[in-house]
Amino acid sequence: MQTLSTFVIVVGARLATALVQLWVIATLVFSIMYIMPGDPVLLLLGPESHPSPEAVAALRQQLGLDQPVLSQYLKWLGNAAVGDLGKSLDGYPVIEYVTASLPKTMELASAAILVAAIMGVPVGIAAALRRGRFLDGLLTSLSTLGISVPVYILGSLLILLVSLKLGWLPSSGYTDISRNAFLHFQKLTLPAVTLGLGLAASIARMTRSSMLEILSRDFVRSLRARGMRERRVIWLHVLRNAAIPIVTIVGLQLGNLMGGTVLVEALFNWPGLSTLLVTAVSNRNYPLVQGSIVTIAALFILINLCVDILYSLLDPRIRRKRA
């Protein structure tokens, strides 16, 4: 019972911290329009078009910029708290654009993390168990190479080899899963692998380092001295204790992917949230920019919160320390 109450306190504290972080980010995002040089209304209308005072006043009223800044901020913050991110310059609610693009980015990021974990964790374990041998050097070199290659170069190479030369998978595009599930996953494979290979290299290196640290602990030598089978020592005791750094990097990478898939989405023509943000910036659609950034930040904070909760579940010592 005491353990459960401690866990609830830890989760509540982390949730309160996450809400404060989200409020700070939302405030900074709202301030973007006022930090940027020039009048945002004139930027939107285009100063070269010499808009009439009536057009400027109409757009200023549409955006709510004719009200005091504090009133604008409180109204925008209150609406954002209930899921109303305002209206895009074309008149459609920003939340509709976000909800249409967000699942595509989440699907791509989740698929990339899945690919990275499936490839990176076993490679890291194998390298740690063969420390100093040929396999360790080979896997470590491949991991370094995977981290060094930019995603747009790797993606371009995969398109040339897998799509154009071998014809195994489509080179780009998006098909809704309800229309054709097989084609949908075919088009998802290349961008997911492109993102996942670089992440797999990072996960492999972290797994190797964490495994080596745990393998050098006294309790591992004690378990071996008692005659416990090596496989049980590795999978039941070593890997569990090494899991926290692995969970850390997986969670952070997943959060980074929420807003870091711009190059891959552009390369493979994947209509996700990053593509929406880039389009909004190029069109000077500031309400859509604000809504996209707040959504990405909220997801990043939520993922970090989930990672912190996993910390407490994996290692009770962290739970007791934070309480």
Rank of each mutant, 00 (worst) to 15 (best):
G173P: 05
I177T: 10
G167S: 04
G146I: 02
L158H: 04
I159C: 10
Y152Q: 00
I147A: 00
V151Q: 08
I147F: 09
L154M: 08
G167I: 00
V151A: 11
S178W: 11
L169M: 07
T144Y: 15
G167N: 06
I159H: 09
K165E: 11
L166H: 04
L154K: 04
G167V: 01
P170C: 08
G167Y: 00
Y152H: 14
L160N: 14
L169T: 04
T175F: 13
S171A: 15
L157C: 01
G146S: 02
S171I: 04
L157D: 12
L158W: 06
L158P: 06
G173N: 05
Y174S: 06
W168Y: 10
P150R: 01
P150Y: 11
V162A: 03
I153D: 14
S178N: 15
V151F: 10
P150K: 00
L169E: 04
L166K: 04
V149G: 00
P150Q: 02
L169S: 00
G167D: 10
S156P: 02
D176W: 14
L157K: 10
G173L: 03
I177L: 08
S156D: 12
L157Y: 07
P170Y: 07
K165P: 06
W168A: 05
S171F: 02
Y174T: 13
S172Q: 12
K165N: 14
G155M: 03
V151P: 03
L154V: 01
T144G: 14
S172D: 14
I147P: 01
L166V: 02
S178G: 15
S178Q: 14
L169V: 04
Y174E: 14
W168T: 08
P170F: 08
L161I: 15
I147L: 14
S172R: 05
L154E: 07
S148W: 09
Y174I: 04
Y174V: 09
L166W: 12
V151R: 10
I147S: 08
S163H: 09
T175K: 07
G173S: 08
P170R: 15
D176M: 01
I147R: 02
L145E: 02
I177G: 00
G167W: 09
V149S: 12
V151H: 15
I159F: 10
G173V: 07
